[in-house]
Design a protein around this nucleic acid. Sequence first.
DNA 1: GCTTCAACTTGAACATGTTCAAATTAATAG
DNA 2: CTATTAATTTGAACATGTTCAAGTTGAAGC
Lengths: 229, 229
Amino acid sequence: MAIASPQEIKRTRRGETSRAAILSAALDLFQERGYEATTMRAIAERAGASLGSSYHYFPSKEHLVLEFYRHTHELHLAAIAPMLAREKDLTSRLRGTVRAVVVTCEPFHAVAGSIFSTVANPSSPLNPFGGAAKPLREEVVALYAEVIKGSDARIPGDIAEMLPLTLWLYQMAILYFWIFDKSPGRLRTLEVIDETAELIVRLLTLANLPVLRGSRKRILGLIRSVVEH
Amino acid sequence: MAIASPQEIKRTRRGETSRAAILSAALDLFQERGYEATTMRAIAERAGASLGSSYHYFPSKEHLVLEFYRHTHELHLAAIAPMLAREKDLTSRLRGTVRAVVVTCEPFHAVAGSIFSTVANPSSPLNPFGGAAKPLREEVVALYAEVIKGSDARIPGDIAEMLPLTLWLYQMAILYFWIFDKSPGRLRTLEVIDETAELIVRLLTLANLPVLRGSRKRILGLIRSVVEH
DNA sequence: GCTTCAACTTGAACATGTTCAAATTAATAG
DNA sequence: CTATTAATTTGAACATGTTCAAGTTGAAGC
């Protein structure tokens, strides 16, 4: 409920071991049973710790999810590094990056629903628009900046400024769609990613048309005004 | 957690009184204290009922929120009826309708955050993409169909087909923005509504341009494929 | 080795959403 | 009016996230 106080816990070796055990148990159990079905008591038990000890390291169950996110983010980065190093075409880079998101998250599909709802809550420390999850969001936004920068596409400056954040939002939308996707192998999500990635790049090109200049300026102004707080 | 069984409770006069008292107490308390701070025990107490009785009429706390939604929807409909009867300009109709949403919801701004997160959860009966909240969503979509139909704008058939649902989604996005809006009188949300309403109608016009034909078809196909399940 | 103190651990206690079996009430049939 | 039955009401019991005061541990300084 309350935002986590940002004070770092100074980690001794003993503490670090406990913390790691608790986190690892939590990640396992979230995958096995889902977020809601995993109780803090079960986490503590599997970690060989006590209930209170878990709360010493993680202020709440939600904060364990935050680590869960960070974990998948690392996996995602590792998965796309070779592609980003090789590929120059923006559509391909975008498609590859977003495809990798859902592929990386696939083992957690069952958990994702309840997590997403937690994340959507503005008063949750996990809400990416503020609170504890903000740094992680910024890492993802930076990743999309890299996706753009490393491509051979020439994006006008005013668009380039807002694009990474917009693509992050796009990724969130894809993830929400993916949560509902019941098709075998989550194929429909992959199709939607392919289609939208192409469409986005196409619209970026069209944005230079004279008729669209006005709308383009307005849209960018809108995004800018929505983002600033 | 479980989806509500759709069996109607046959309401005798006695039952109806109790049900109404519980609902009314819940609506009051949600406004006074917010969703999370309102306990089922407090609702029962204020309603002069017992805890168990509340659960006899409402399968869960979330289902009380659903009624809360329905309540604000009625208020919204009443608020915009005169405007819709008079106004023919699509931009004005759209702006007026969405403005009325946030104005109607203003008394519940403090509650809205936690409610929104509950609603976003795919496994919640309140999730508008399925479950108990679907009928209400369809009412709102129908309202936007009316917003379009009653206007003097001539919308191409393929767009008109998908537009109401898209506008419902747009309304959801505005509401999410509104939740975070801390400006006095929620002025920023109103500004964003004005700007986006104009922009949407402008883009609808532009969609007829030959250069945009391809993208238009693709976007519509995308929406269609995303909506169908 | 002893003291000190912060880090760490513990489990009981609490609040609250939910379930349920039993009790109560009121309407209906005879 | 009485018996029956379904609707309604009740509150105890349960599960689980969270808090907290008290206990334990181990390293650093002497």
